[in-house]
Computed example of a mutant assay.
Amino acid sequence: MKIALVHDYLTQRGGAERVFELLCKRFPHADIFTSLYDPERTIDLRDRVVNTTALQSIPGASRHFRLFAPLYFPAFRLLELEEYDLVFSSTTSFAKAVRTRDDAMHICFCHNITRFLWDTQTYLRGYKEYQMLSPLLEPIFHQMRKLDLHYASEPNIYVANSSTVAERIQRIYDRPASFINYPIDGSQFEFSAQKEDFYLVSCRLLSYKRVDIIVEAFNWLGWPLVIMGDGPERERLESIALENITFIGHVSDEERTRLFAKARMVIVAALEDYGLVPIEANFSGTPVVSFGAGGVLDTQVPGVTGVFFNRQSPEALHAALIEASQCDWDYHQIRKHALSNFTESAFFQKLDQFLIQTLDSSTADQLGLNTPSLA
């Protein structure tokens, strides 16, 4: 059986690239395809051959990959994948457009819908270039939305990273999607049952992260809060924060690990599609107080790993913090939850089970799914 793995572009290292790295590990003999490849700036594929599109020959394309958005759909359509029996595309935008053989199986790991097309203002409002060029770009985006909907029909099966993204795929693309929660590297976090007297926020200081809610709630409570991270909202947030709140900006990996392990709780006020910070807290044995929508609904267990608040308001967060402070947390159970659900091995087990349920028995046998995992 010939397998192809396809990713939008390998020019950075983010969550989507981490999942593609896991697919490459799970299928070590599969051929790899992408539009642009910069081995110095992305995941380590070692000696694997990476097949690219014609865009790779454009000088500077890998560093300015966002500028080539209108060219990706035609570039992926030109890839030669007719010889492959099973194709996995890993995408937030374009790779789902690959042309496959009629009897081939195309499984799309869709990390999100194409956000710059379907949530343009939210996704691009921070880019000055978009604000200046939006009258010229919007007609192009209009045509690209039509293509995005058309090519969304190409995959046979969709897999999302959370129920929130699965719902979005259904709503925008009119395609059903299963979901498998993606793992993190838990070895980067250390467990501690000895908590110190401070609460922790870890995020970029952007408006949608709603750190203003957290600051106001802790102003009322007077409890010690440490805010880790930087961004355009920092100056405004510092101006309204009382002396019990400390902004520490960026810190070393070692210090970040220590803070996650020692914090009494980690606070998350944003609506995240998936959200890694709550899982990182759980690996550290630390409970989470989070806005109860989005990815946390898949990753957190109320009363076991954390507490939800149902409105993005300081009053709702204040009530949740009081509730959480009265809980008798089992820090070992919190970490066990993370180890059971969000490790690399847990991901491979879920992936294999999904493929067994999805593929015919002959294909599953050829992939070795009825034998111990290759991972």
Rank of each mutant, 00 (worst) to 15 (best):
D197R: 15
R236A: 14
Q12L: 13
L149E: 09
D119R: 09
R125T: 07
Y9K: 10
G222E: 08
D230F: 08
T34S: 14
V277D: 01
R311T: 09
I184N: 01
L276E: 04
A346R: 08
S162G: 09
L71M: 12
H150D: 01
A61F: 04
A263F: 06
S163E: 12
R66G: 02
F73G: 01
G303M: 11
L136M: 14
A261K: 02
F88Q: 01
D212A: 12
K146N: 06
I107A: 04
K350T: 11
Q353F: 08
I43A: 11
A177R: 01
V251R: 13
P39W: 10
P135V: 07
G231I: 09
Y173N: 01
Y9C: 10
Q131V: 06
D119V: 02
D174N: 14
N181S: 13
K146A: 12
S62I: 05
R204G: 06
A95P: 01
R256M: 11
R311G: 00
A177I: 04
L22S: 01
A320M: 05
M228K: 13
R234Q: 13
F191Q: 02
T299I: 10
F198G: 03
H29T: 13
D330M: 12
L206S: 09
T120G: 06
A269N: 05
T100L: 03
S89D: 03
M1I: 13
K96A: 00
V266Q: 07
A346N: 04
V277H: 03
M265I: 07
E280A: 04
D360Q: 08
I240F: 06
V87D: 05
N310S: 12
Y274T: 00
M105N: 04
I107Y: 05
S90I: 05
D102R: 15
M132H: 07
V296K: 06
L237G: 04
F68L: 15
F20S: 00
S93H: 14
L117D: 07
E40R: 15
R175D: 00
Q300Y: 04
S361W: 07
M132G: 00
I267W: 11
H318E: 07
L147R: 13
R234F: 02
M144R: 05
V201F: 03
P314L: 12
D185E: 15
P224Q: 06
E216Y: 06
Y208C: 03
L242M: 09
I32F: 09
L206M: 13
F88A: 02
L259H: 07
S90L: 09
L86G: 03
T246C: 12
L67W: 12
R335N: 04
S313Y: 06
D31I: 10
Y331Q: 07
S345K: 14
K146T: 07
D330S: 14
S192M: 11
R26H: 10
E238T: 09
V49M: 09
T164K: 12
K128A: 15
E82K: 15
D47M: 09
R125D: 08
L36G: 04
A16K: 02
L237V: 03
D365A: 14
D31H: 15
L297K: 15
K336R: 15
D298K: 06
T92Q: 11
L317D: 05
R236D: 08
D85W: 01
E154F: 14
V251C: 14
P224V: 09
P155K: 01
C24V: 13
L200C: 08
G222I: 08
V304G: 01
K195I: 08
T363K: 13
L81V: 05
Y37T: 02
A16L: 06
F68D: 00
L124C: 08
